[in-house]
């Protein structure tokens, strides 16, 4: 049955409207969770507020299990789901630069747009920074291209690397997440926060 648009069960004309509706849900949940506050987001890295850890991993696990069960029930063809390709070197270095941006700027791109939507001026400046950063990358692309394209491994899945099923991998992720949630709860008791 699914995914509906790639299989033309729903016309491609609807895809952008679907994107808009899904975006509304995305933005609403991010804001309700408190991701519109940089102090809440940064709290993750100082232990006083681990909402990022809890929301991020609960969401990843929910969607992961959803895909596995949908596939099991024959509701979705996983071969038609886009899996982002792995380029190991650029993924690691890009991730390191993003991590620095996260702790320096207090947002990531999605949360900054959500925060800007409720009037956070620091988030608007952050978005201006993203625009500049992408512009610098695009203009510097000739110099960066070789590294950007290096270490190509295609749309590789972690379960294939370790030769385990998707279900076993999901179970491992769930166990690791539960341990981290426990750590997060302990940290929040150790470093109490104020409310913003």
């Amino acid at each position: 049955m699914g995914p509906l648009v790639p299989q033309e069960i729903i016309g491609a004309d609807w895809n952008l409207f679907i994107a808009f509706v899904i975006g509304i849900g995305f933005g609403f949940v991010l804001e309700q969770a408190g991701f519109s506050s940089s102090r809440k987001l940064a709290g993750m890295f100082y232990g006083y507020d681990t909402v990022v850890l809890k929301v991020f991993f609960t969401a990843a696990i929910t969607a992961m299990l959803g895909l596995l069960f949908f596939s099991l029930f024959g509701w979705i063809d996983l071969n038609l789901i886009y899996v982002n390709p792995t380029f190991l070197g650029s993924a690691i270095v890009g991730g390191i630069i993003m991590g620095a941006g996260f702790i320096i700027g207090g947002f990531c791109p999605g949360t900054s747009v959500c925060a800007a939507a409720i009037g956070k001026i620091d988030a608007m400046i952050f978005i201006g920074g993203i625009v500049l950063g992408i512009f610098f990358f695009a203009e510097g692309y000739p110099l960066l291209k070789d590294f950007y394209m290096s270490g190509s491994m295609g749309p590789l899945k972690v379960s294939d690397v370790f030769g385990i099923s998707g279900g076993v991998l999901a179970l491992i992720v769930i166990i690791v997440a539960l341990l981290m949630f426990k750590l997060g709860e302990l940290a929040e008791k150790r470093w109490p926060r104020e409310e913003y």
Binding site: Y82, S90, I97, I103, G105, F107, F137
Partner: peptide, 27 residues
């Protein structure tokens, strides 16, 4: 921070939502 995140998101082919969250869900 925004400049770094913007640059890194292009090098890393996606940010926290596009690469990390979505990528983890699709394993």
């Amino acid at each position: 921070g925004g400049i770094l995140f913007g640059f890194g998101s292009q090098l890393g082919r996606g940010c926290t939502s596009g690469s990390a969250l979505t990528g983890m869900a699709s394993l």
